[in-house]
Nucleic acid binder design. Structure first.
Lengths: 274, 274
DNA sequence: CAAAACTCTATACGCCATACACTCAGGTAT
DNA sequence: ATACCTGAGTGTATGGCGTATAGAGTTTTG
């Protein structure tokens, strides 16, 4: 009978959700049984155990003993939930513990402290840690966020890599460029690796059969003059699975990264000289 | 009443579809009104005009004047269709025209021909072309294929970049690593750029407001000691939109690529010397 | 105690991929 | 000519999805 009395309806703000903005307890209606934390945790568990496709509002709510619509009291949309889940699953970067002050106002590089730190090792470590996270939550790589990195953990990871590149003689702009380049390469290589790892279970085709299919396709072109370089790599056995598994992209990442860092060193050296 | 007579039912093979395997005309039933080509073309038009989300079997079939189920005579599943569409939309790489023979058996690099070609320019050109393709079909970057690169055009692009790196003193394995590294970086930077470009129309929030939100979030941490490097970049105006648009990742790609190629040069030089 | 604020549920809508059973066109073999 | 049968395309149904809307039930405030 009541003709749809519109109450003021506490609206959920996107950024508050991302930063865990602790709504100041409602104080008028029934006590909330859920929270963004619980919802995000359940969502992450589902994604870990059943994959990103299983991450639906119904499923998450069901896992918590509620209906799908109840989630919308805490999260404005599934997309926003995914944004939160993304940041939460990332977790903090490895070096987040020591909040040093590597940001001096010295623009030219040497940070004044005596011992030069091993920035290459720091970058390498950051990359390994990132890879580990992606291996633990491969579905992170299938998420398309449509929003710039704004979550606390995303920013922390960004900050960590920036700190690794800090004070070695790069301009601010160059550091940002490098960070984007490196994160991009890591993300994509981890992505293809995870895709290929998931292929057997997803398509029901065994790893061996996939290898056969690949070999078959490659034979298609090895005799043809159409793909000479590919034919050459096939012939030299570069595509054969050696000691490392078929989908291991870490060697490519390591190789590319080292060359890139060599380039960085040469770049700052050149600038110092010139 | 007929108890479901199972006919032999021409099955559609995945790889044949990808490579346009020209089914040898049925010769017994009615003439097919569709073809993989027509279907893929319609699908690409839809994705270009309405985005990847609009790419449904119903939609594609409707555009062609058929029902959704009819497509399954030509394509085993939507996933396979997407694989085909991906390869078709990629198109051939720019240098596919001249099928030179850069694959000599000379393992150490110099390819015997007199004039040294500008391999760096070739790599740069490949990257620009790849970026152009991604700009023309941004939805390509939202596709998760779950299968290794097997389409003819995917292989052709691979081949093209391999040829750029050929004969400069890298081993076969190193070339493959580099190709994966570069394609990864290009893909991901193009991806984030496209994501940020789509953000305004998708969320209804104007580019300005996004910028404001970003600035707001950054102010959250500029005063905090939590993200010193980010605060520094904010302070130095590195995040401000200069002449290039906010989502332009090309400068990052250019910068990273040049440093990487510097590293490559130094790497082969070192090997030659040592 | 009533009103207001709030949580959570039920239902419904319009999408989606695709399994299944079917009609019928149009060649081939007799 | 005619019977046959392959295979194209359709109709329907199932079970999923995100979420709009309406409202039932709970708790605190005036």
């Amino acid at each position: 009978m009541t003709p749809t009395r519109k109450s003021k309806e506490t609206q959920v703000k996107p950024l508050d959700v991302l930063w865990g903005g602790e709504r100041p307890r409602p104080a008028r209606g029934p006590r909330p049984g859920l929270s963004v934390d619980k919802i995000a945790a359940a969502a992450i568990r589902i994604a870990d155990e059943e994959g990103l496709d299983a991450l639906s509002m119904h499923h998450v709510a069901g896992k918590l003993g509620y209906t799908a619509m109840s989630l919308y009291r805490y999260v404005p949309s599934k997309e926003q939930l995914v944004d939160v889940v993304y940041d939460r699953a990332l977790g903090p970067p490895p070096t987040a513990g020591r909040t040093g002050q590597p940001a001096t106002d010295d623009p030219d590089g040497s940070d004044g402290s005596g011992a030069a730190r091993d920035w290459r090792a720091e970058v390498r470590g950051w990359v390994r840690s990132m890879l580990t996270v992606y291996q633990q939550h491969p579905w992170l790589l299938d998420i398309t966020t449509s929003s710039p990195p704004l979550g606390p953990n995303q920013l922390a990871w960004l900050e960590a890599l920036l700190q690794a590149f800090a004070g070695i003689g790069l301009t601010d702009e160059e550091m940002l460029h490098l960070v984007m380049f490196v994160t991009g390469a890591v993300r994509d290589l981890a992505h293809t690796s995870s895709e290929m790892a998931q292929a057997p279970e997803k398509t029901g085709v065994s790893m061996e059969q996939i290898g056969e299919g690949y070999a078959d396709a490659m034979r298609h072109l090895a005799d043809s003059a159409r793909f000479p370089m590919l034919a050459r790599l096939v012939g030299s056995g570069t595509f054969e699975p050696n000691e490392t598994p078929y989908n291991d992209t870490v060697p490519s990442l390591d190789f590319g990264l080292e060359l890139l860092l060599d380039g960085v060193e040469e770049h700052v050296r050149r600038r110092l000289r010139g």
